[in-house]
Design a protein around this nucleic acid. Structure first.
Length: 426
RNA sequence: GGAGAGGUGGCCGAGUGGUCGAAGGCAGCCGCCUGCUAAGCGGUUGUGGGGGUAAAACUUCACCCAGGGUUCGAAUCCCUGCCUCUCCGCCA
């Protein structure tokens, strides 16, 4: 969430940010209205509390001396009752104010291109050679079914639409990709491997920004009064590792890498990507998460993106990096690069990674701070994350990019140690 | 699932109704002293909000797991929740 002081003192900046995102600015005036009422009341309550504290102090002294305190006692009771009333009202205002504040999106960084939607995203670089085929390249689901490594029909019997069953070399390929990516990030780029819970509570979801606004995108455990949710990305549990903590300056930066299943309801995407691995209710993803000092976060975003890109370079698949425009930027992000991987059958790039700097937005929600050596007070850390990469989509791209005319698929060099073979055959 | 114990500052640990933001110890920081891989002595060290200042100083409110309640007044009493630990059962 945003700093309420910023909303108060630099309202124009926030209005500008909302407009660039294409969001309604009405929420701001509502928030400010509540906030002003809250502050006014807070002032009154604090003054009254001060008076009460003085009175009760005197009562204490008198009682100790064994003297009569009944006259002050009456005053004290009266003011105390007033305070109780006003405190209730104050609590109401506080919760209203924070409810509103939680719905305001982050302010885009100055370097983010202004635009309405994904058509105005900007391609920064395209890397690798787009493969040419002497035949019509086939869709990955056809390849997967013909080689017997993907079974969508049985998955739908077991679970439903938008699920997949990996079998044999398919399951092995999924695992190979996971191991390859995790080994790369932990072994070469300094990330610490994490295996977190994939069920989290409401506080964790609120900390990273999925709640309260995007409840509809999540799977929720109905059978449990605690309100558990299935994670839509490892970002949630991993960022929340340090919720309500104050880190030491010398501990930063912290880099974590985690591979988890991700669960998404995909409500409202009924017509889209109904076939194949692109859009599933459950998929695996290697996620990179960073906690850094504010002055480093934009450099860290570049580095994070490079780390994710390296996976594709080594796999030898063409990709491009695009900068999301203001209208396409996620709720909590200040800046985002998407990495898109080449899909020959569709003849276009599809997203496999989204790398974002959230600056202090998540840190404020989740209360993740750090203390500079020799300085008083604390500051919010900056958090970042990015996929490094989505496994299912990468696997799909491997099948499509390395398919052969005879129906087999050549396994990229870097995966062979994990696969134990250089080819998947029909 | 059953039974019990407990949650206090960076850590350990006192405190069961009033002057407690909290004794004492450890750790950290500053200074003195000392000449040997350190000890002794003195001082100091939480977080958030409001006001105030150029910035400080200063001032005020809140915070002893969380949320309610009792009371003039709560770390201290009551209720609810969460978490941790021990034993039994069960389970991968």
């Amino acid at each position: 969430m945003l700093d309420i002081k910023l909303v108060r003192d630099k309202t124009d900046t926030v209005i500008d940010a909302l407009e660039k995102r294409g969001e309604d600015t009405a929420i701001l005036s509502k928030t400010l209205d509540i906030e002003n009422k809250r502050r006014d009341l807070l002032k009154i309550v604090e003054e009254q509390r001060e008076r009460r504290n003085k009175l009760t102090g005197e009562i204490g002294k008198l009682k100790k001396k064994g003297e009569d305190a009944s006259s002050i006692l009456e005053d004290a009771k009266k003011i105390s009752d007033e305070i109780t009333l006003k405190e209730h009202k104050l609590r109401e205002l506080e919760s209203l104010a924070s409810q509103e504040l939680l719905l305001i999106p982050n302010i885009p960084h100055d370097s983010v291109p202004v635009g309405r939607d994904e058509t105005e995203n900007i391609e920064l670089r395209a890397v690798g050679k787009i493969p040419e085929f002497a035949f019509d390249p086939r869709n990955h689901w056809d390849i997967g079914e013909d080689t017997g490594i993907l079974d969508f029909e049985r998955a739908s019997k077991i679970a439903g639409a938008r699920f997949v069953l990996y079998m044999g070399a398919g399951a092995r390929l999924e695992r190979a990709l996971i191991n390859f990516m995790l080994d790369l990030h932990t072994g070469e780029f300094g990330y610490t491997e994490i295996f977190p819970p994939v069920i989290v509570n409401k506080e964790a979801m609120t900390g990273t920004g999925q709640l309260p606004k995007f409840e509809n995108d999540l799977f929720k455990m109905e059978n449990d009064k605690k309100g558990f949710y299935l994670i839509p990305t490892a970002e949630v549990p991993v960022t929340n590792i340090h919720r309500n903590e104050i880190l030491n300056e010398e501990d930063l930066p912290v880099y974590y890498a985690a591979c988890t299943p991700c669960f998404r309801r995909e409500a409202g995407s009924y017509g889209k990507d109904t076939r194949g691995l692109i859009r599933q209710h459950q998929f695996n993803k290697v996620e990179l998460v960073k906690f850094v000092k504010p002055e480093d976060s934009y450099d860290e975003l570049e580095a994070l993106t490079k780390n994710a890109e390296e996976v594709l370079k080594r796999l030898g698949i063409a990709y491009r990096v695009v900068a999301l425009c203001t209208g396409d930027l996620g709720f909590a992000a200040a800046k985002t690069y998407d990495i898109e991987i080449w899909f020959p059958a569709q003849g276009k790039y599809r997203e496999v990674s989204s790398c974002s700097n959230f600056v202090d937005f998540q840190a404020r929600r989740a209360d993740i701070r750090f203390k500079r050596k020799g300085k008083k007070g604390t500051e919010f850390v900056h958090t970042l994350n990015g996929s490094g990469l989505a496994i299912g989509r990468t696997l799909a791209a491997v099948l499509e990019n390395f398919q052969q005319e005879d129906g087999s698929v050549i396994i990229p060099e870097v995966l062979r140690p994990f696969m134990g073979t250089d080819r998947i055959r029909p």
